[in-house]
Write a protein that binds this DNA or RNA. Sequence first.
DNA 1: CGGTTTATGTTAGAAATTCTAACATGTTTT
DNA 2: AAAACATGTTAGAATTTCTAACATAAACCG
Lengths: 109, 109
Amino acid sequence: MEEDKHSLKERKVITIGIVSELTGLTVRQIRYYEERKLIFPERSNQGSRKFSFSDVETLMEIANKIEEGVQTHEIRREMAKKKKGVTEKEVRNRMLKGQIRAQFGDPKM
Amino acid sequence: MEEDKHSLKERKVITIGIVSELTGLTVRQIRYYEERKLIFPERSNQGSRKFSFSDVETLMEIANKIEEGVQTHEIRREMAKKKKGVTEKEVRNRMLKGQIRAQFGDPKM
DNA sequence: CGGTTTATGTTAGAAATTCTAACATGTTTT
DNA sequence: AAAACATGTTAGAATTTCTAACATAAACCG
């Protein structure tokens, strides 16, 4: 199934320095979590990482787990499980938008 | 009146290179449109520009006007006029979200 | 018409950001 | 105790961004 490459949340446009500011994590940590396959930034032509708001959100969740003492290893497993729930939420959300469109015409959301 | 600094659309997190890719404008053009007060990026501590998705949208509109042969000068005037309409749309949108919340509970939108 | 402004390119040098890779180290796991 | 984890730090290279200045074709305007 296709990811939504176009919602603002999913677009990979934020550089690592800004992600660092936004999350409070060091760039070292962010790179390390990528290495551990917890996040998947895209790369620009020259190889610099580009993150989405969604990635930023994920990183904040990761930061919490880490503080709780959970290992990346375990976080990775939990995230795999959660994937299903997320997909369901997306479907629900799409349905919701359908309803809105039906009621109000096409409000460019 | 306060701007909404928190919606994804308004957050200033995109560097000029990426804005350039996203809009097809050169960085020279983007800087120039700032100089002409058509856009208002924030600055990082060290002085590099940070744009929002909203800025990107605006830049695309600007690019169209420019192609039509409209001068920055004129575009600036048009944008001032449009400001009012935008505010109205924001209000309407907020109302819409209120309705949705009322119907479906709080769908984290 | 001719001077002025507009819009953009180009160049130059400095400062900032990002990248990879390696080494160090205290802390958990196993 | 050995291995793995999580981060910091350092180093050098590559990329990006910044400002400022100069150049110029095109558009505007008195």
